[in-house]
Structure formats: structure tokens, C-alpha cells
Design a protein around this nucleic acid. Structure first.
Lengths: 153, 153
DNA sequence: TAAAAAACGTTGGACACCCCAACGAAGATC
DNA sequence: GATCTTCGTTGGGGTGTCCAACGTTTTTTA
């Protein structure tokens, strides 16, 4: 009964929460390096993609689409606008809104970002075989799901 | 060729990097809530465990053991010391060093943290079957590995 | 139609985790 | 004895996430 406990720190390091933090950090670093050339980061990629998806749209629409915080959306769009990747013009039909639209440069950049993102993700999962990658992503997607398993609806 | 691109944002959201960020965030939130009762966070757990593992030890030893930044270690130990979970006494044999030692309360707290951490991790992987959990953690551990696949050492 | 409610963009602030540079004090090395 | 290294500490930066409040404008309600 007075057994030696297995090393407590090693136990922590084997926890999913710890491993997820590590792996996510690695992903962030890889993506950050990949996007550095464009001077952008992950959120910029997501917002640019959202603008491409739902055409000219108000900032609030992007907030709903992406789930990003409105405050953060302001900063992201400031960057994208400064880089000429999107235009931000007042909506004449609703003077509260700004109309965010993709520029030609924005579309080009989005294509590059998609490719860079794919490459970074390939590097991220380089240690896995293709079959393992598929399996891993499938399981990961279910873990990432926010859904609460409510008491049997 | 003028095919409709699949939604760009959905594509991003299916990337491992995105999913890892999401899942890691969920884990951080779950662990944060679990540890809130103790007034501690994840790094405190790790450092406390490290102290338990390698007995009375200097801060530099903990830095090497955990890989944490020395600056952050100072803050973490400040918290742990204030909570009476560790003692921090000058080393008479080397006046540069502080000897960090676990208190009885620290050992008790570490036990509670381990249990709370396990519970939070169970909730984190609740969507998976036991077999899937095992598989997921095994794959995740390999993804989290920092190791660069150097050009064949 | 006037008042209340909601939506919009913006600003300020906070938190968790991660990392780097530099410093004075003390010990180790030559 | 001078140099180099280690130790703890302080100061700062960066990414991603989130909340509270405000003035303005539109929509809804009484």
C-alpha cells in the first residue's frame, strides 16, 4: 500500500487536456509561421473566408457566422482593410452597418492562405499515417464539439 | 471550372489546427472550472506535481523539470506559497537558490487536483467510447510531440 | 406617434498560456 | 583574482478568448 506513486507530473502530461494544449500550441506555431509571410494570423483567415462565403455582409453578420467576439472582429477587419483585402463601407440602407466586401487581392490572399494552412496542417499531422489522420480528425471533431449531453431531451 | 467552392469557413473549421484549438479551449475551460474551488489553475497543478516528484528542489530544478518559463515559475510559486501548499526557503548551501518543498496541505491539495483533473478530462472525452478514448489519446500524444523529423540523424 | 427595445460598431478591460531579454547576487571555473 | 555560469527576479511582448459598456441608429411596442 505504501507503493511509490507514479510520477505525478508524467501523469498530468498524459492527460488529454495537457496533450490538447500542447498539440494546439504546436498548430498555432506552425500556422503562425506559415501565415507570417502574409502578415496575417488564424482569425484573419477565418474572417476572410467568412466574407468570401457570405458575400458583402455587415460586421454583425460576420460575428454571427464566425462566433468571434465583436471587439475582436473590429481589430481583425481593421487589419484586413489596411491590407486592402476587404473593403468596409457604410451601408446606405442602414447607417448602423458597415458593408464588408472581399477585394480581388482578398480573394487571391485567401487562396494562398488556404494552401499555406493546408501545408501547416500536413506538417502538424506528419507523424500520423493517412488512415490515422482521418481517424484522429474524426475523433477530434467530436471532442471539440461544444454540445452538452443534456439530460436526455 | 467555375464550380462553387465549398464554403471556405467550413473548410477551415474542419482543419486539425482549428479543431485542436477548439478542443484545447474546451479542456482549459473544464479544467479551469474544476480547479476554481482550489483557486488554482493548470500550471499550479503541474508545478505542485513536479515538487511532489522531485522532492525539495530549487526553482531552477522545477524550471528544467516542467519546461515552464522562469518568470512564470516565480508567479506560480508565489501563488502556491501564499496558499501554504509549498514552502520557499533560502538554501544555506547555495545562497542563490530557494528550496521549494511540499507541505502536508500541498500533498492533500495535489490529490484533490488530480481527482478534479481526471473528472474534467472524463467530461472532456465524454463523447467518445472507452476504446475511442484510448485510441484518441494515443494519436494525440504523437501529434503533440514536439520532435522535428530531422533529416535522418 | 412617442417611448421602449433591440441591433450595430466601437472602446476598454480582463484572463490563460507562451516566450524572450536583462539584471544583481552568488557560485564555479580557469 | 578574473571570467563565466547559474539562480531568482523583473519587465515586456504576443496569441486567442471573453465580458461590460457606450453612443448611434433601427425596429418594435404601447
Amino acid at each position: 500500500m505504501t507503493q511509490h506513486h507514479e510520477p505525478a507530473l508524467d501523469r498530468i502530461r498524459a492527460l488529454p487536456s495537457w496533450l490538447l494544449n500542447r498539440a494546439a500550441g504546436r498548430g498555432r506555431r506552425l500556422l503562425g509561421e506559415a501565415f507570417a509571410h502574409e502578415g496575417l494570423r488564424m482569425p484573419h483567415h477565418a474572417v476572410l473566408a467568412a466574407v468570401a462565403d457570405i458575400g458583402p455582409v455587415a460586421q454583425a453578420g460576420l460575428v454571427r457566422k464566425t462566433g468571434f467576439d465583436p471587439k475582436d472582429m473590429v481589430g481583425i477587419l481593421n487589419d484586413l482593410q489596411r491590407a486592402r483585402l476587404v473593403t468596409r463601407t457604410p451601408d446606405p440602407d442602414d447607417r448602423r452597418k458597415n458593408v464588408i466586401a472581399l477585394t480581388a487581392e482578398g480573394r487571391d490572399c485567401l487562396g494562398r492562405l488556404a494552401q499555406l494552412g493546408d501545408e501547416a496542417n500536413r506538417a502538424l499531422l506528419a507523424a500520423l499515417t493517412p488512415a490515422e489522420r482521418e481517424q484522429f480528425v474524426a475523433l477530434l471533431a467530436r471532442v471539440a464539439e461544444e454540445r452538452e449531453e443534456g439530460p436526455v431531451g
